[in-house]
Design a protein around this nucleic acid. Structure first.
Lengths: 344, 344
DNA sequence: ATGAAAGCGCTAACAG
DNA sequence: CTGTTAGCGCTTTCAT
């Protein structure tokens, strides 16, 4: 980016001169004003007001070695399937909490491994105090890269087994899945199928585990594999109906796949929920409410997770600074909630 | 945000020492290496490599008075209705082009007028070299605020009449609308209705103008007012059918409203496109392709617009710096394209 | 409680 | 072509 307009802004020096104090005192006032006589502090604040002084962040960073910024790393190709609600809500939560902490959000949009170098350099450049990332794929190189950059980072979603112990925020995928399946059991269903998500994403794995927690002796033929897309849900449903035409319920690992399943059930003339009850996961409102019939699903508080990621990062950062033993960083698991609609 | 881990990074001084040159020479090499003997440059690069040196951006900014960052200002409450494709594509375009310019994207998420102060302070703080904003509402205070902050800014979407002449990137809303309406005319339709978008958004106004360009003598009863939501499109369609049951085509100012219109037409038993042809605007693929019947619409290259916003900003920034006369900043209007599907 | 002074790490004249 | 020298604007000991 080329140069900027030269409209020079007032410096702390100018403020100090105007207030008739030293730069040091002016600095103290600007940074909270502890230990400065009231009368002087007022004068400084007045000068700040009159001059329209705004601290130069670069100068401040240079000496404090803090940027006041946090990177949010978005791996776009993976985020796409979640489309609007997920991304927007998560970023909103993060943004809100960051704002509350007077920190800035720097968006690092990763399109592929080709961007890794750039990201690594940026992280290492001390541009940000910490980072927020989403561990969507188990085998992704991103977590490793972030670890090497040695920037305090909190993950959204439990990282895969390959990753070292890192702090993360996730919803209770396994518990939520259990709740969903128990709900189906409570409805009297006896042949409950599962449409699983990708095997390399921990959320999908955990949800499948939850299913098995309740139905530990379920027929393996009652589980089909999807990839979180609607089409894959439709395919999986068709497969399940072929293998076990007698099934009377299905728990899909996300709403999109549940929507695909509903479509197939409708096409095959199976009545939902009478003949087959369906439960999804996520509560993507746009999907769940417009599904026919509307989808019973497990809700997770995505925005809240975003906010918690920031809080957790704040804690990690202050630990680091204190030089205290960091130890195994605490992670946070958020509760889920069953939202009953028409499909089960 | 609290302090950062103390793992001190190597400085340029260290690199210079290791390469056996002065700091100035090392700096030159790091910044392109023009005018440095090859052998020395190599030595410096080697030292950089060995030490894992990464320039400290704060120090650099302090002297160059450039941040290498651009703010993207998102007014969330207004963006929401566009949901996933619009936001994601635009940000992707911006991010790509910014990356190509080695600039960072700082996301400023505005939730309401309560955030204006914070935004103004941030912009004034010299944290960013320029800003990208979206002028979605005519009466919004944001454009004025941005102007006051004196940060070079490019808008996405033509700002309303109230705003001073500012550079912006927009698609050819008016021309696109003309194309859509002419297409309907070419289909032999004679009573073509228009479902207009909000009167305070220039995109909606321009599209309505395009409609009138072609049908300058159209019955005013053939135009109904919507607000870009699907429901409003449905309501407008119902209204139109009441007023002019003989209508044989409708051009909706966006795809969401077109989808609402299709729904009502279906409910009322009007065959599309036989009895009523429908054209939308935007080509939101998720909406247009899954509509029944699939929607003929006007496509705009949203990602391309994002990229162009960055290019235009780059140009504005370099003009400013040169001290050349800035004059009326050039804006960019991108072409649109009619995408034929089943509805018209 | 306040001020003087010393840098933070880097770039950019300016000499040589 | 290279090195020397000043700062950029701010925070922060350290005296007072």
């Amino acid at each position: 980016m080329p140069e900027q307009s030269p409209g020079s802004r007032p410096t702390l020096e100018a403020v100090a001169a105007r207030a008739g104090v030293s730069r040091a005192t002016a600095s103290r006032v600007v940074n909270g004003g502890a230990g400065v006589r009231q009368s002087l502090a007022d004068k400084v604040r007045e000068a700040v007001e009159e001059l329209g002084y705004v601290p130069n962040q670069a100068a401040r960073s240079l000496v404090t070695r803090q940027s006041g910024a946090v990177a949010v790393i978005i791996a776009e190709p993976e985020f796409r399937i979640f489309s609007d609600p997920f991304f927007e809500q998560q970023v909103r939560g993060i943004s809100r909490e960051l704002t509350a902490n007077d920190a800035q959000l720097v968006l690092l949009w990763v399109e592929g491994p080709g961007d890794y170098d750039r990201i690594a350099r940026y992280l290492a450049g001390g541009h940000v105090d910490g980072a927020l990332a989403f561990s969507l794929h188990n085998d992704d190189g991103l977590p490793a890269l972030i670890r090497r950059a040695k920037v305090p980072t909190v993950f959204g979603g439990r990282p895969g087994a390959g990753a070292a112990a890192v702090p993360y925020v996730d919803c209770d995928n396994r518990g939520g899945a259990r709740t969903a399946v128990r709900h189906l059991v409570g409805l009297g269903r006896e042949r409950i199928a599962h449409i699983a998500g990708p095997r390399d994403q921990t959320s999908a794995i955990d949800r499948a585990d939850g299913y098995r927690d309740v139905l530990f002796d379920a027929d393996p033929a009652l589980t089909a594999q999807g990839d979180f897309t609607e089409d894959s849900g439709a395919r999986a449903m068709a497969e399940l109906l072929e293998r076990r035409p007698d099934l009377d319920a299905v728990f899909a690992a996300n709403d999109l796949m549940a929507a695909g399943a509903l479509r197939v059930l409708r096409e095959r003339g199976r009545r939902v929920p009478d003949q087959v009850a369906v439960v999804g996961f996520d509560d993507m409102v746009t999907v769940a409410e417009s599904a026919k019939p509307s989808l019973t699903t497990v809700r997770q508080d995505i925005e809240g997770m975003g906010r918690l990621m920031v809080r957790l990062l704040t804690r990690v950062l202050s630990q680091d600074g204190d030089g205290r033993h960091v130890g195994a960083p605490a992670s946070v698991i958020m509760p889920t909630e069953l939202v009953r609609r028409a499909s089960a």
